[in-house]
Design a protein around this nucleic acid. Structure first.
Lengths: 118, 118
DNA sequence: AGTAGTACTATCTTAAATGATAGTGCTATA
DNA sequence: TATAGCACTATCATTTAAGATAGTACTACT
């Protein structure tokens, strides 16, 4: 793998950055990662997710769920009970975010220590 | 570690989510992670960073660098040459993001395959 | 009969992020 | 002499994200 060290190779460095920008574009905003994390603990219904995530409004949750579905990170299933119930599950592709979210979570914990602790 | 599985324990689940929200608050926006990634390849000057990151404006770069400095993720050093040159380096604390960014980057690559490939 | 829950949508407003453009005072280079 | 680079800042305009509030049609519970 080529580098973009000290004496800088901007083009190489740009290439390294592009996929993180791609990822950020899909995961942007305050709520998407929290929602995904909530679903990694099992299938949930709309209200259950909203209870997990403090402060999210129905409007935001509804919108973000749609976005995540379009990007194949979660799946929406309507059960034909009466009244119908709707269940959200994480997809295999969504699960592939788990490791990264764990890292982020641990970093969040460490960061608090770093800032407070010193 | 307690769980918030199927039959849901919202309080526990909320607790899991909080630190990822903390992290997101510090790393939010389009540019912070790209900037940090750029600096993991070595100390850089303002213009060099801006060349690495396609599309960022001076205004945004300037602002984001300040934010990152406040959060102790990068360090700004002025060398007293004439004219003075300014150098940005990643801090130890900033380096602790490296693993997580790598995960994100790989995920970005995989996601592209997932969406395009199928 | 009244309240609460379910899974949303609609409308409106505010706040925050980002972008466009230009300018500064200096130096080095063509 | 003109141009470009450096490390920014200032001003303004636009876009996007997010929040507030209310409403729907239905059921279950008290």
């Amino acid at each position: 793998m080529t580098e973009c060290k000290e004496q800088h190779n901007p083009e190489e460095c740009t290439k390294m950055i592009v996929p993180v920008r791609d990822a950020l574009e899909i995961l942007n905003g305050k709520w998407k990662l929290p929602i995904i994390l909530s679903l990694t603990f099992g299938a949930k219904r709309f209200k259950q997710i909203s209870k997990d995530i403090n402060g999210i409004t129905d409007r935001m949750l509804s919108k973000e769920l749609k976005d995540l579905e379009v990007n194949q990170l979660i799946k929406r299933t309507v059960h034909d009970t009466f009244p119908p119930t709707v269940e959200y599950t994480i997809t295999e592709h969504g699960k592939s975010l788990e490791k990264m979210i764990t890292e982020l979570r641990n970093w969040g914990l460490e960061h608090r220590k770093q800032i407070m602790g010193k």
